[in-house]
């Protein structure tokens, strides 16, 4: 079995004639925070769509916790927890009902799900809001509920696509701190897609994605060097500040 939580090799994808991803290869080690940095349109969401098998990859290979996504999608998807860029909770239902629904989509029975729902809500600090409808929660609380949903089947790796977009500074910090705590406390691996450089620590693994290609991969502090991450990113991508 691969030691990586996520291992992507030579992944390409096109929408019509437009190439959205071009020979992307990256590795997310187990128990690690890996930031996927790129401007809007860099290909982050397309990459997430392929990893979560919303589309099939036609070229390249995706392995989740050692399971090939094309050959063994059930095993691979069972090990993925996902927080999408756009809200994916059912606004008509309560937090608990949303989590219960998600648990059933992973084949987790009601009795077992009940215990896990209590556990994950405690982890994200929403135990008191379990009976509230999603619409009654703030943006930050909804994001935490989404993280709880993504954790309920105990995935090996958590994918978060621009999870802090639209949140105020306090909520952003809370969501990021919660995610980092999950790595420390539960050993889950994280792939964190973002375009906000402040969210990346020098000790994090970093993948810079631009126009569908990986430009740099390694320790964030090493990539940033003396110039700093912002300057390095702008120089690499040619994006003006």
């Amino acid at each position: 079995m691969s030691s990586a939580a996520l291992d992507i090799t030579d992944l390409s994808h096109q929408f019509g004639r437009r190439r959205a991803l071009d020979q992307v290869s990256l590795v997310v080690p187990r128990g690690n925070f890996t930031a996927l940095l790129g401007v809007n349109g860099a290909g982050k969401t397309t990459l997430f769509s392929l990893i979560t098998r919303l589309y099939d990859n036609r070229s390249g290979r995706i392995r989740v916790a050692g399971h090939d996504l094309r050959q063994n999608p059930a095993q691979a998807l069972a090990r993925l927890g996902v927080v999408f860029q756009s809200r994916a909770l059912d606004a008509d239902l309560t937090v608990r009902q949303n989590l219960s629904y998600h648990a059933s989509l992973h084949g987790i029975g009601r009795h077992q799900a009940k215990g896990r729902i209590a556990q994950v809500l405690d982890q994200v600090g929403l135990s008191q809001r379990a009976g509230d409808r999603i619409t009654a929660l703030s943006g930050g609380q909804q994001r935490r509920a989404e993280i709880a949903r993504a954790l309920i089947h105990r995935p090996d790796i958590l994918l978060l696509d621009e999870a802090t977009v639209g949140l105020d500074v306090k909520s952003r910090a809370e969501v990021l701190a919660l995610t980092r705590a999950l790595i420390a406390d539960h050993g889950v691996s994280v792939l964190w897609a973002t375009h906000i450089m402040d969210e990346i620590h020098p000790s994090d693994d970093l993948v810079i994605l631009h126009e569908g290609r990986v430009l740099r991969q390694g320790r964030a502090g090493d990539i940033a060097g003396q110039a700093g991450l912002t300057r390095t990113f702008l120089d690499l991508t040619g994006v003006s500040a």
Binding site: T52, R53, L54, A78, R87, L89, D90, Y101, L105
Partner: peptide
């Protein structure tokens, strides 16, 4: 449109 469909489609069931 709201994204809720993704929750269903990323389930490991066929």
């Amino acid at each position: 449109e709201t994204g809720a469909m993704r929750t269903l489609l990323v389930s490991p069931f066929p």
